[in-house]
Design a protein around this nucleic acid. Structure first.
Lengths: 346, 346
DNA sequence: GTGAAAGCGCTAACAA
DNA sequence: TTGTTAGCGCTTTCAC
């Protein structure tokens, strides 16, 4: 790899002139300029951007901590980030943390060791150690999707509480009164928010909230499948299940159908996220649509604002949602719910 | 951010001693060592890895070109890469190219501009320009998933032809003779390979290959849905559809079911990839399982071998596959295929 | 065992 | 308009 000195020698000018020609061509005479450009061509010179970054102290890299890229929703968020970052000349360093806080801290260190300028977090967790935490001002980070109250940084989030409430109200309006909920990971504030929205709706409708209707999950298909098994076994079965994400809902729906239940005639199922598969399952899934790509784009632009010093306070950006009603939710069956498995009537 | 000089001053030693203490502690006296460590603690020193990388000329970054991270299969491959890379102290620079060759070239430039040491490509396309192409020896790149014959670099791939043949033979063994195929993106060699495997199986079975049974697709749910529409409209309907990936199969299945066909009684549907959703659709999808994470891990280790000079030839690594038979494929119906829409009999 | 100093490739004062 | 030079933070000879 030729360096700037070789180009300078080839063109018979100084390295400064080569640098100037490349950075501010107008400050170089046309004659020299063309001579330099020729030398660049001839030598096949490519500036060593590592050196540029080192010198400028700006890496133009952003670390992104993702619990798992295999989650379809996150994949869309990442797409949006990628797009926005590329537009501004930033590259993404993707960290698939698998929920391992060691991995998160390792990647967070890339910011402290000048390998990245900032960090975007898709999970509620402060990956920086105390040294950073005590620093004054905003951390060079943005929290997306999840809410993270304790850390002074911008947050890009959905009004999860309102969205969960809207979905629950949709189910209530269909006549459901025993609505089960399959939750997301325990540790996630997002899970708590959605649960709160669910309770809000029940309370407003004068329906007593029942802990027995809550089932654990972790956002995977298999967790949904498993939770559905528990729901089927419960003494007084629910007529509707609200799942905290679409994968969970698809897993649950699968189990219900295998058990001979019809969706939505016997049991309604609702999801959250509106991943591409939601429109293509059988029946198509009622869910909450989130503009995932916009999440990503907004997170990046917020982070760049922090990095440039444009942002001094930590804004909370609320991304809008949509209730998408498809065919997986329907009127509550008017039978009593004594039998465990209903007969399929055609 | 304190630098090494400040630490040296604080500890009352030279910068060389600080560097040595951190790199090769055994070459420093215990007394000095503890004094330096103390200074590191006190100042909160974190080495500027950008400077280290600049100096060493090794970035420990790998660029990954992905057509789209929103593809579930690629997401799994990336997980595997991430894991293997992290183990070796490498970070991934993820480029979501969306098939745009401009984006691919931009990211490929990161290798040429010393921002990354190497590149992994998940698409059959040489992102390097001629300057690189003419260089002697192997390019610092690995091709994964797709086959890319023209470029001297290691390839990690599935025997797509054999896998497609295995699936087609499975369908033939069920008595299907009119097997439609929904293809992947035209430009992809992988698509050609799978098509070839399909033809191989037909030829061996003495069945005449028919162009009219081939339908275009692009690996998305909606393409599968659309292609299924064309299949339904075709004069002499097929009894089985082999889709080049699972999303396509799920989209197609959705359309068939909406049209009142039963899968697999009226029409069998097969996919490729075995994404998580394949086991949770209705009916569960017969497909080809690929060890996606292993793909990623292997690609990374191959690339590191190239970078370290351990590899001088360009090996072709073949990853094994599995035919996973679930419920979306069944015996061919023995009726004539004259009616367009069958009645659903229960 | 420790320190002084060169230098990785580049940019930006400052001088000419 | 162009050249000279210092220096970004670090590692690594080479002396001492």
């Amino acid at each position: 790899m030729p360096n700037i000195r070789e180009v300078a020698e080839y063109a018979g000018v100084s390295v400064a002139t080569v640098s100037r020609t490349l950075q501010q061509p107008e400050r170089v005479s046309p004659k020299t300029r063309s001579r330099v450009m020729e030398a660049v061509q001839a030598t096949g010179y490519k500036p060593n951007l590592m050196a540029v970054k080192f010198r400028s102290g700006k890496t133009h890299n952003l670390v992104v901590l993702v619990p798992t890229v295999a989650n379809v929703f996150f994949a869309r968020v990442i797409s949006g980030m990628q797009e926005a970052a590329a537009e501004q000349g930033y590259a993404l360093l993707l960290a698939n943390t698998m929920g391992d806080s060691r991995v998160e801290e390792d990647y967070a260190k890339m910011v402290q060791t000048s390998q990245a300028d900032g960090l975007i977090q898709l999970r509620a967790f402060n990956p920086f150690d105390d040294a950073m935490a005590n620093a004054q001002g905003l951390l060079p980070m943005v929290n997306a999707c999840e809410v993270l109250d304790a850390v002074p940084c911008p947050t890009v989030t959905l009004d999860n509480r309102a969205a969960a409430r809207a979905m629950t109200e949709h189910l209530l309006s269909l006549g459901h009164t025993r609505i089960a909920m399959i939750k997301g990971p325990q540790a996630s504030p997002l899970t708590r928010e959605r649960l709160a929205g669910y309770r809000d709706a029940l309370t407003s409708a004068g329906i007593c909230y029942d802990d027995a209707l809550l089932f654990p999950g972790d956002f995977t298909l298999s967790a949904g499948y498993q939770a559905a098994g528990s729901i089927l076994k419960s003494r007084e079965r629910s007529t509707a299940v609200f799942c905290e994400n679409d994968e969970t809902a698809m897993g649950a729906m699968q189990h219900f159908k295998q058990a001979g239940l019809r969706v939505p005639e016997d049991i309604s199922v609702a999801g959250f996220d509106d991943i591409a598969f939601a429109a293509y399952c059988d029946p198509p899934l009622t869910t909450i649509a989130q503009p995932a790509e916009e999440f990503g784009r907004t997170a990046v632009s917020q982070l760049l604002d922090v990095l440039s010093g444009r942002t001094r306070r930590a804004p909370k950006i609320i991304i809008p949602f949509d209730l998408v009603v498809r065919q997986s939710t329907g009127p509550a069956p008017d039978t009593t719910h004594s039998s465990h498995i209903k007969e399929v009537a055609s």
